[in-house]
Write a protein that binds this DNA or RNA. Structure first.
Length: 442
RNA sequence: GCCGCGGUGGCCCAGUGGUACGGCGCCAGACUUGAGAUCUGGUUCCCUUGUGGAUCGGGAGUUCGAAUCUCUCCCGCGGCGCCA
């Protein structure tokens, strides 16, 4: 959540921010009205409580002196009743105010392009050498910086669904039968390729100073509510029936919640954590999109980067996390572009977000495979994660980024590494030590 | 799942109905050439900063008053049961 003190002192910052995000500023108006009446009522309640405490102390001393206290008892009982009544009202205002505060989005960084739809995301850079079908050249040129390198082909790459099914590497039909749409069975060498991706990513981040963590795959309400905006995401999360548990949608959730309510030493920071976990997502509202294959699924494995750091370092870390993900893609041989996501597309948590979009030659498109976000102090404040300084406790900043989401990367490999002549898939060189094979054929 | 014992400020710990004791650590000041030792003050949160309010794992209750009594939930430890 946002800093309430900052909100009280710099209203205009938050009204500007709503404008940038194309959001109704009505929650801000409501906050100020509620906050005002809350503060007035708090004052009255505290005055009454003060009186109650005074009388109680007096009763204590009178009892010691063996004097009569029955009339004082009546007085304090009356005060107590007024307090109870006012506290009920105060609590209800407080609840409402807190709900409103939680809906107020994080301040968007000045470097974020201000616009509504994702067609206005800023292209930051392109890297690699995409193989582009001749029909896709103009799309490619429009969506990359001038001079981006690519090669042209007349052969359209086969879609990953057809290729992987033909090679006996996925079974979508049976997954539909047993679990439903957007589930899959991975088979044979594709399973080993996935494990290779994960092992490679873990080694990759280990070497770059990350602590490797396999977290709980479920979280209780309090943790989930603090680590993400549940109002926005509850439709995306699976809830366990009859239990206070949600399946995580990313390792960001359990890794962030891991330090909930803790006070760190300044010397503990920064903390780089790589979370390895499955991700469970309802993908509600994505009807009709990417319905075939394993590009958009309810369950996939992901290696996630997460950083807890001091505020003055978080912008450097956003670049570091992005670089880790870019280097990973490059090392595999995947061409991609980086986009700076525009203000209207950011989640309430994000101050800024980069996506890495890989080139998918069969689709003839750049598609998202990595998201790197700086949530500044927004998530740290909801989680109440602080660190000690000479000037009191400060809220940590948090950032997260995909390192690799396996299913999407498998799709990218299937589309970019298929070999027309043999009909098989070659394994990216860096993965061969992990797979033990360099080619997948039928 | 059952039984027992626990949960007190950053850490340790006292407190069995009268408003949270003490120690350690940390911060600031004094003393010192500096450090240490010592002394003094501070060191959870809230608000409109006061002779203010809240806070003893969470919630509810009894009471004028609850860390303390009651109920309930959570977590930890030990034992039993179940189990890959």
């Amino acid at each position: 959540m946002i800093d309430v003190k900052l909100l009280r002192e710099h209203r205009e910052l938050f009204y500007d921010n709503c404008r940038k995000r194309f959001m109704d500023p009505e929650p801000l108006d409501r906050f100020f009205a509620l906050d005002e009446s809350w503060r007035q009522m708090l004052k009255s309640v505290n005055e009454l409580k003060h009186r109650k405490n005074e009388i109680s102390m007096k009763i204590a001393s009178l009892i010691k002196a063996k004097e009569d206290v029955s009339s004082l008892k009546n007085d304090v009982r009356e005060v107590g009743e007024s307090i109870d009544k006012m506290e009920l009202e105060l609590a209800s205002i407080d609840r409402e105010r807190n709900d409103v505060v939680r809906s107020i989005p994080n301040l968007v960084d000045a470097s974020v392009p201000v616009c509504k739809g994702d067609e206005n995301n800023a292209i930051v850079r392109y890297s690699g050498s995409a193989v582009v079908h001749e029909d896709d050249i103009s799309y490619f040129r429009q969506n990359t910086p001038p001079g981006s390198s690519f090669s042209v082909t007349k052969d359209r790459a086969v879609s990953h669904v057809d290729l992987l099914e033909k090679l006996g590497l996925i079974d979508m039909a049976r997954a539909g039968k047993t679990a439903g749409a957007r589930f899959y069975y991975l088979k044979n060498r594709l399973v080993k390729l996935e494990m290779a991706l994960m092992n490679y990513a873990v080694d990759f981040l280990s070497e770059r100073g990350f602590t490797i963590v396999e977290p709980p795959f479920m979280l209780n309400f309090d943790s989930m509510n603090a680590v993400t905006d549940l109002e926005t995401f509850k439709d995306a999360l699976y809830k366990i029936d009859g239990e206070d548990l949600f399946l995580i949608a990313t390792a960001e959730h359990p890794i962030g919640a891991m330090l909930k309510d803790e006070i760190l030493e300044e010397s503990d920071l920064p903390l780089r954590v790589a979370g390895i976990s499955p991700c469970f997502r309802k993908e509600a509202g994505a009807h009709g999109k990417d319905t075939k294959g394993i590009f958009r699924v309810h369950q996939f494995n992901k290696i996630e980067q997460f950083v807890f750091c001091k505020p003055e370092h978080s912008w450097d870390f956003l670049e570091e996390l992005l670089k880790n993900a870019e280097d990973f893609c490059s090392s595999l041989g995947i061409a991609y572009r980086v986009v700076n996501i525009c203000s209207g597309e950011l989640s309430v948590l994000n101050a800024k977000k980069y996506d890495i979009e890989a080139w998918f030659p069969a689709q003839g498109k750049f598609r998202e495979i990595v998201s790197a976000s700086n949530n500044t102090d927004y998530q740290g404040r909801s989680l109440n994660i602080r660190y000690r300084t000479k000037n009191g406790n400060q809220i940590v900043n948090t950032l997260n980024s995909t390192e690799v989401a396996t299913t999407r990367m498998l799709v990218a490999i299937a589309e970019n590494f298929q070999e027309k002549d043999s009909g098989g898939i070659s394994v990216p060189k860096v993965l061969v030590p992990y797979t033990g094979f360099d080619f997948i054929s039928s």
